[in-house]
Design a protein around this nucleic acid. Structure first.
Lengths: 191, 191, 191, 191
DNA sequence: GATGAATGAGCGTTCATTCAT
DNA sequence: CATGAATGAACGCTCATTCAT
């Protein structure tokens, strides 16, 4: 087993436990056990618990981006691009429910709030595809005349709510409902 | 000070600390201190920490209902009723940010998931105003042709996302933006 | 048992274990066990381990002062005062070997070095009896013409070395040898 | 690099870290890193941590002896020999403050106490120069009429105290003060 | 021989809960 | 009833030591 395998095992165990039990219910010893390593071993790969949590988030983010960008063309009409990104994202969540549950936990924590504050207010170089899309939409007056961060909240709100309830089993999203969900998101923000 | 006063003080202290620091950052001793009671006293009013958390949730729910029902008429047209309830709810969150932050924590926890499972799938007698509204909307074909729980998720998703980001200070909701938010929610679900 | 009794028990257990085993060999759990309290209880009386160590030092210092000042007169001739304080101090160590061992550990630690730095270089209001004595001795030219901190080191050096070796059992200090020790200290610094 | 070089690097790294950070602050991994070797390598040269600590002490002792014996003649008068050895020792400490700090740590630890017990009470063949000197001084009645171990404690006490405070920066020992220190030590024990 | 990744016992500390007062 | 001191299990984390490579 290589070094990267072990790191991956730890991240996987952490993902599962955090997603299933929440941050509370996943002590380091349990993560170690599920990963099949000694408790101290985790600290060779992650400086401490907080950094494990943040690194896991970064891994997931990096996993999502290529998935949603697959087949994406910036030449396509605005609405088509919106639908593409939204439906890819929703499908990613449906295919990776643990990832979704983890990301929800992360966002609903001091880490997550700080992260979103940086992202929304700041100007990072990375992962700006959504931001750019919404900026264009505002410019071209195809979106409602509202502050950019509000447009983003309005568009993602229904998508995330539907993803969560699907994963919790409150209803089942088939391919048709995925599309209808994204169209509803479009209705939320389109002018 | 009456028994109810003391109970209220504890709930208030718990609300503040849970909302500000999260469940993590609010040990029972701190809640007791902020409430001005002994640590053991909390256990006279609440069997244990989990029950305190759940009881606090129930209190808040009971606080919200009369607020949003104020001025509500089931005779009004469907859209007007939707706008009324949505904007009252959003205003409640804006006026009571601690309540909102607490409710978010609660929903994002094992308690919250169980609670919503009961509510959405089950058929409680209480707090059915939203459920009834959406059922009517579906019947009258004024709402999209989607499963009821999905319609609810779609409608509340943007509202809660916007409330959260307003409270985190990412933008400021004035009276005008409140209305535009609810209209956007309407666009999400209207046929 | 009163609150002060319990605090005293903890300090006593810490004194014994630190003196006998060193700081290394005295984990909090062992101190708690020897004190007859739960591990968490220590933290009601001492914020953390470092503060327990420092508080214990302060307790011992406050115990020593009245003992060595007993029968002391600032009217007595310089040499008599020197002999008085020195022999009282040495007797204190002989009667309280655990205290001596603890103080040695403390001095030979980051805490102790910081403490002595404050004391020697700074000007605290407390426990200035030795400092004043040596200042007078320097003024009256009854002590060697050397920097004050050196005179103090020279005078205490033999006293502490002898106290340590007595306590370790390398020889036995009876009343006669105590006096001869202090006279030797006097010879070290007298002009 | 030869086997001895590597052993030397480890001892040097251990010396520096123990002297600067204390035994606490010098984990094996840090010693290995500073020595430029793998962590496991240390265990090829030293059975365990305690033995490394003891071996380092022995190395330092063997380093000191030739230094203080340099220019020493057993034909010289007693006082001259006392002054020679004392001032050479003090100069050694001044020139090698890390060695001094390490030796202090060592003496103030279970190892050190056991070591001194063997040395003072037992009769080792090694490093007997001080013991022989003091025995002669007692015989010739040039030293005070006290037990031999006491004379040694009395003579070294001020020397070590002054060395420590010089190294801690409480005063500065120039060549003149070195001599005055040793003369004070002489006054402590001379008849 | 040399390495450094892996281990897990042991540490200082926290905190929900109990119960004598 | 109300209290808050006491508890001890459980936590995150460290580090001396081992051993497969």
């Amino acid at each position: 087993m290589t070094k990267q395998d072990k790191r991956h095992d730890i991240l996987r165990a952490a993902l599962e436990l955090f997603a299933e039990q929440g941050f509370h219910g996943a002590p380091m010893a349990l993560i170690a056990e599920r990963a099949g390593v000694g408790a101290g071993t985790i600290y060779r790969y992650f400086e401490n618990r907080d950094i494990l949590i943040r690194d896991l988030f970064n891994e997931l983010e990096e996993d999502i981006l290529p998935f949603i960008m697959d087949g994406y063309s910036d030449k396509a009409p605005f609405r088509a691009r919106f639908i593409h990104l939204g439906s890819r994202l929703l499908r990613y969540f449906i295919q990776n429910p643990l990832h979704f549950r983890y990301l929800e936990q992360f966002h609903n924590s001091p880490f997550g709030v700080a992260h979103r504050r940086d992202k929304i207010l700041g100007n990072e170089g990375k992962n700006t595809v959504f931001k750019e899309l919404f900026e264009q939409g505002a410019e071209q007056q195809v979106l409602k005349d509202l502050p950019l961060p509000m447009l983003i909240a309005l568009a993602f709100g229904p998508l995330l709510a539907v993803a969560r309830d699907h994963i919790l089993g409150f209803f089942h999203l088939d391919e048709d409902l995925v599309l209808k969900t994204i169209e509803a998101c479009w209705d939320t923000v389109k002018r």
